[in-house]
């Protein structure tokens, strides 16, 4: 009994420590073969535990990856929703315009006939033309700092995923300001770099449709064309480029648009 108790204690300790010291086991005189057996058993226990740890590590890595993917998808859905809201707003204002102008307006609005087919850009520019130039809310220091984070992540850190996160935080906290439009524009740029063309198109469309009088609008329209071209939507790209030239003839984007139009 006196020998058995310490042996079992040692065994328990070894299990806890996860380390096997052959010497400490064999120092007990009570039949080294018996002790050898228990350390042999421990070998298998540890082997199984290691296998289990690896399996769990694998699960952990896979789930972390899943979460990351879901987060990204969540963000993309957010943009999608935003775009749909813009789209609905557009149609509403189109309908209102039509009602205000009466039946004669239908003939004078080229492109409105396409409104039903969901051609966002064509409809936008039309309705935008009838809108007055807005005064955008100017940012305070906190807003500027938050915007600075986006810029830093894009230009210095080139960490586009986190930059996109920052854009979403920004537009939520500071909606409908001057820099909000810039933020949407940069979201488009981020997605364009990442070759996430669907999302890029949506982000640029938001600027083009909702803030068509903003100074970023010509750039956004031009970049929308670039995105459309990369998606293989050549006709859409051509239309967007023609609109850059027609609507913003003095903008920096106009000569760029003319250039790209020539190479289409």
């Amino acid at each position: 009994m006196q020998q058995v108790i310490p042996a079992s204690l040692v065994l328990a300790l070894m299990l806890a420590a996860g380390a096997v010291s052959a010497q400490s086991v064999s120092s007990f005189q009570d039949g080294s073969d018996r002790e050898g057996q228990s350390s042999g058993e421990l070998f298998f226990v540890i082997q199984e535990l290691r296998q289990e740890v690896r399996r769990l590590q694998g699960q952990l890595e896979e789930q972390a990856n899943q979460i990351e993917r879901l987060n990204r998808q969540g963000r993309e859905r957010y943009v999608d929703l935003d775009e749909r809201l813009v789209d609905v707003g557009q149609r509403l204002s189109t309908v209102e315009d039509g009602m205000a102008k009466g039946s004669s307006a239908a003939g004078s609005g080229p492109g409105l006939s396409q409104g039903g087919s969901g051609n966002l850009v064509a409809g936008t520019v039309d309705s935008g033309a009838s809108r007055d130039r807005r005064n955008y809310r100017q940012p305070d220091d906190a807003e500027r700092a938050a915007y600075g984070i986006i810029q830093k992540r894009i230009h210095e850190e080139k960490d586009y995923d986190r930059a996109a996160d920052a854009v979403y935080d920004f537009v939520e906290k500071y909606p409908e300001g001057d820099l909000t439009v810039n933020a949407y524009y940069w979201l488009g740029e981020i997605y364009l770099i990442q070759k996430n063309l669907d999302q890029a198109r949506r982000a640029f469309s938001i600027v083009v449709s909702r803030y068509d009088d903003h100074r970023k609008a010509p750039d956004a329209l031009y970049k929308l064309a670039v995105t459309q071209q990369q998606r293989g939507d050549k006709e859409d790209a051509r239309r967007s480029l023609e609109q850059v030239i027609a609507r913003y003839p003095n903008a920096d984007a106009a000569p760029l648009a003319r250039n790209l139009l020539g190479s289409l």
Binding site: I5, A12, S38, G40
Partner: peptide, 12 residues
């Protein structure tokens, strides 16, 4: 061997 282990622990 398992029996022996169980035995040890029980005795302890």
């Amino acid at each position: 061997n398992l029996r022996f282990l169980v035995m040890l622990l029980l005795l302890a």
